[in-house]
Simulated assay, not measured.
Amino acid sequence: MQARLLLEDGTLFTGTSFGSEGNSVGEVVFNTGITGYQEVLSDPSYCGQIVTMTYPLIGNYGIIRDDFESVRPFIHGFVVREHEEAPSNWRAQYTIGSLLKEYGIIGISGIDTRMLTRRIRHHGTMKGILTTAGHSVAELAEMLGQTPLMTDQVSRVSTKSVFGAPGYKERVVVVDFGAKSGIIRDLSKRDCDIVVVPQDTTAEQIRRLAPDGIMLSNGPGDPKDVPHAVQMVRDLIGEFPIFGICLGHQLFALACGADTEKLKFGHRGGNHPVKDLASGRCYITSQNHGYTVKEDSIAGTDLIVTHINNNDRTIEGLRHKKHAVFSVQYHPEAAPGPFDSSYLFDDFIAMIRQFKQDHPQLPRQAQMLAASKAAALSTSEKGELHYAKK
């Protein structure tokens, strides 16, 4: 069956459909990874986007559920040069086409993905419509113009309820803005007692969980679309050690008074060089973001730039001057890799332990008992005041 991709600038690509059928509108982006198409498909940060893979052969090692980064895919379309329906991999459970069909995602293959990528690099990411229907180009253009891009991606991909991954060491609250499973895996490897909370959890609700540290996860879209999360981060800075990744990095910057802006075509792939300004070392990183922290907005804040992108010099890492908070724009939990930056999770745990030494507290049970006594005393005082007024 024929499939077509129409960009908002009028460029039309015609190819072969695989996966589901119908129409789908999204922001057209590209990923430069040679491997990792399963992780791309299941990364919640791609919610609302039509993803183009620049590597020409996709699907050759099939689909393995154990390699997924979330329960299900959230992308709006998948664009490849060639897709393989006969994978060669003893672990493969089914094909990429059957996965897309299962979740109602349209795929298109047989188009010039290099031309499409060059067009996005030159003109920037743009809206597109992917279809297997017989609409005319004029009808598709009208549908594309009438369909706005999503702004509620975070609420769509975040967990709706609190859940835990028990451990016996530091308690870490993960605020789920679209968290990949890799974050949970890396914290679990370090025996953390993990509590995952929804994206709209308030600072007070997090305080009640008595965390040792807070993880601000990755997620899709514009950080300014979740102002409640910015306020939550602002309220907690200084109270707990905080580590932000990707969207969490941007929310941390906004909470400290910095600003963000949209990149021309974003950073998406597993081969992005990042320089650690303290050591001068270059790390190869996995990235997936369309927004960045504006460099000129850092002045006048309590933020220090710790990492920069070696390709375009954009900010890739921040640290607070006074409080135990740091963040990175890239993905230290990357799967299937690279793993160069996984040490950041060790830095986070070390920061938690140092914070606890610098700010000794009563054991949690003693804290709860003290809070309960304070509440009882407050109730008693209110009763006495009421009686005195009588």
Rank of each mutant, 00 (worst) to 15 (best):
P227K: 07
V197I: 05
D43C: 06
D186N: 11
G257P: 00
G317P: 08
T201H: 10
F18D: 00
L12R: 03
L247M: 11
M150T: 13
G145H: 03
G124F: 12
R234H: 14
G270Y: 12
I129G: 06
G77W: 06
D67F: 15
S297H: 09
F163E: 02
S17T: 08
F18Q: 01
F326P: 00
F345Y: 13
C192Q: 12
A370G: 03
T201V: 15
G257E: 05
M351F: 10
I106F: 11
H320F: 09
Q329A: 04
L377T: 12
L140R: 08
H307T: 08
S286F: 08
V325H: 02
Q250Y: 10
V174Q: 02
A376N: 10
Q329N: 03
G97M: 03
T14Y: 02
G383R: 15
R114T: 15
E82A: 00
G167R: 05
T379C: 13
A278G: 02
P332Q: 11
I129K: 07
S327N: 07
V195F: 03
I34V: 15
I129D: 07
H320V: 07
G77T: 09
P241K: 02
T117K: 13
L149R: 03
C246P: 06
D9N: 15
R190D: 01
I183M: 04
T117E: 12
S42L: 08
D67A: 14
Q2S: 08
Q205V: 06
R91W: 06
V29W: 05
T11M: 11
P166H: 03
L116E: 02
S297L: 11
R91Y: 06
V233L: 08
